[in-house]
Amino acid sequence: MNVKSLVRRNYAKHPRIDFPDYKSSTFRAPKNKKISFSSSNTEILGPIFNKNIIGKLDNDLTLNFSRNKVSPLGHKIIVYGTVSDQFSNPIKGALIEIWQANAAGKYLHDNDENPAPIDPNFAGCGRCLTSSSGYYEFLTIQPGPYPYLNRGIEWRPMHIHFSIFGKSFGQRLITQMYFEGDPLIKICPMVNSIGNKKAKNSLIGVLDTSRSNTQNLLAYKFDIVLRGIKQTYFENRKEGL
C-alpha cells in the first residue's frame, strides 16, 4: 500500500496567528490550538487549473487594464522565479494570482481609504500558471508603499500579494513579496509576525542587476516553496492497517 501525506508544517517558520502588534488580528485570530490529523484525500488532491482559463495578458499588469495601451504610471518591473516543493522538485502548472497597489500606493478597491489617486490604467490584478520547470513571470509596475491604520498610522513596505495553488489543497499558500533594500520592511508588524529571521528574509524579492541592465525595467527574483508530499510504502500489510 502506498500512503501519501504532506510534510508537517513547521509553525516556527510561519507568522504567529495571534500577534498583538498587528491590530486587525486582535478580534480575528483564533485562540485555540489547531487539531492535527493525518492527511486525507482532500488535502492531497487538486484542484488543478487548466491552461485555458489564462488569457494572453493575464500576467502583464501594465496592459491588462489599460485603455488604448496607455501605460500605467510608475516604473516597470519584472517579477519572476520558480515554484518548487520542499524536495526541490519544480511544480508545473501551479496557479499564481497576484494583487498590488498602484505606483501611488492605492488599491482599486472600495475599502481602500488611502487618499492617494487611483490610476485609470492599472487594476493591480494578474495571474499565470508555472511552466514545466516551475517558472513564472509577471510584468507590472513598482507598487508604492502606503499608510494604514494599525497602532496609529503606520506604513506598509512596498509589496505584492501572492496566492498559490500547487497540486494539492494542502499546499495552498497566501503570502507577500517585499523588495530588497526597502527600509520599511524591518519595522513592519506583518513581516515581524514571523519570528524566524531566515523565513522572514525568504519573502524579499532580490534585485537581478544583470537582467535589469539589459532590459528597460528592474527585475526581481522571488522563488516560492510549497509543502512536499511524501509517499510511504507499506509492504505486506492489508488495506486499513
Binding site: 494570482e97 494583487w99 482599486l108 478597491h109 487594476a123 493591480g124 496566492s163 503570502t175 519573502l203 516560492i224
Partner: peptide, 29 residues
C-alpha cells in the same frame, strides 16, 4: 525535505482584487 516552506502573510483587506476581481466590479481582466 531540504527546503523550508515559504511563510504565509496575511491576504489583507484587498484580496478580492487578485482572487475574485469580477465580484468587486473589476470586469475587464
Amino acid at each position: 525535505e531540504n527546503l523550508d516552506e515559504t511563510p504565509f502573510q496575511t491576504a489583507g483587506p484587498f484580496l478580492h482584487i487578485g482572487c475574485m476581481p469580477n465580484a468587486i466590479k473589476i470586469n475587464r481582466i
